[in-house]
């Protein structure tokens, strides 16, 4: 059974200028222990999709429709009487069987509380642990994420830690209750390259050691290539392609995925090949295009792409792509 199953999720934001259609019908499945990467540019809806799933949308955000099944339970908002009931329910899940790692290690931690207090909080709130047990486990967690002399450092405040160390603490907090799913939203974006390497190494190591599944939201293809088993590419509020890491990197089917791979430079290659940028900019989700979201920037766009949404084609088991070029009715060259 899939650990997380999302079906046709639609999220809108009410703004003065109209409804921003941030997530426009997203479906995917995540197996236990799997690492899924969600890649997209800013405004592609990748973060808002996850926030819709874990119930952390901003006040003006509304989940219009969609089903979310987590660990055999239906956690879609429409199943609850009101928002309050939903929030109470989600609060029990978050930080327990579902944990989050956020982008900015500088603002996530509470600056006036000791690291220890912040580490044991999820254990006391969710678990049946006594304070003493929780403190013991907190030190174990600090060791696990590679913080030297944890007995001493656990009594310190966040400002006494560097960016990389803070991100380790946040990871330790996420791991506190042995979650089934960890959602990491750009966990290394705010860090320097050598510190990023340390944190990625840690996440990779924990992936092998723990039983948690990971969803990694990022814009960095290098990061997902290293960590993820499967990758979903998001564009204009939709998943345009999903497949294994090799499917996406070696056999991309969607013109956007292809374009994205062509406009990053791989330092392993030496040829003075020019980067091929994708012309234009992403669609405005206040007025999203009727057909394929990528139509205005696609070099292979056809007439049908403009007016009709592309159907999802299955290339092989687990590799799916929403593009008219793959439809059986398309002209094959």
């Amino acid at each position: 059974m899939a650990l997380l199953e999302v079906n046709n999720l639609v999220t809108k934001f009410k703004t003065d200028a109209g409804d921003v259609q941030a997530v426009r019908g997203v479906s995917f499945k995540l197996e236990p222990k799997e690492a899924l990467g969600i890649v997209g540019e800013s405004g592609s809806g990748k973060s808002q999709m996850m926030y819709s799933i874990i119930g952390l949308l901003a006040d003006n955000g509304v989940v219009e429709s969609g089903d979310v099944m987590f660990d055999g339970e239906d956690i879609s908002i429409k199943n609850f009487k009101n928002k309050r009931e939903y929030n109470d329910f989600m609060r029990k899940i978050r930080g327990n069987s579902m944990a989050m790692i956020f982008q900015d290690p500088m603002t996530f931690l509470n600056p006036v509380l000791k690291v220890e207090t912040q580490l044991i909080e999820p254990m006391l709130n969710h678990g049946n642990m006594s304070k003493e047990e929780a403190k013991k486990r907190a030190i174990e967690l600090m060791k696990l994420v590679g913080i030297p002399s944890p007995e001493k450092r656990i009594k310190q405040y966040p400002f006494e830690f560097s960016g990389g160390m803070r991100q380790r603490i946040i990871i330790a907090i996420a791991l506190a209750n042995n979650p089934k799913l960890i959602i990491a939203d750009e966990p290394t974006t705010a860090l320097d390259v050598t510190i990023q390497a340390q944190v990625l190494e840690l996440i990779e190591d924990l992936k092998d050691k723990s039983d948690s599944a990971i969803i990694m939201i990022t814009h960095d293809l290098g990061v997902v290539a290293k960590l993820c088993d499967r990758i979903a590419i998001m564009y204009g509020g939709k998943i345009v392609e999903i497949g294994t890491d090799r499917d996406i990197f070696h056999d991309p089917k969607h013109p956007y995925t292809e374009g994205l791979l062509q406009c990053i430079s791989n330092p392993e290659n030496d040829d003075e090949q020019d980067l091929t940028p994708i012309a234009g900019s992403p669609p405005d989700l206040l007025n999203p295009p009727k057909g394929c979201p990528f139509v205005d920037r696609c070099t292979k766009a056809m007439k049908v792409c403009k007016d009709y949404e592309p159907p999802v084609s299955t290339i092989k088991e687990g590799h799916q792509c929403a593009c008219w070029l793959l439809d059986e009715r398309a002209v094959k060259k």
Partner: peptide, 16 residues
């Protein structure tokens, strides 16, 4: 050397 080896390579076969 260390800085270069820290770059994430956008190719799953190489990166892993």
């Amino acid at each position: 050397t260390a800085l270069l080896s820290a770059i994430p390579i956008p190719d799953p076969d190489v990166a892993k």
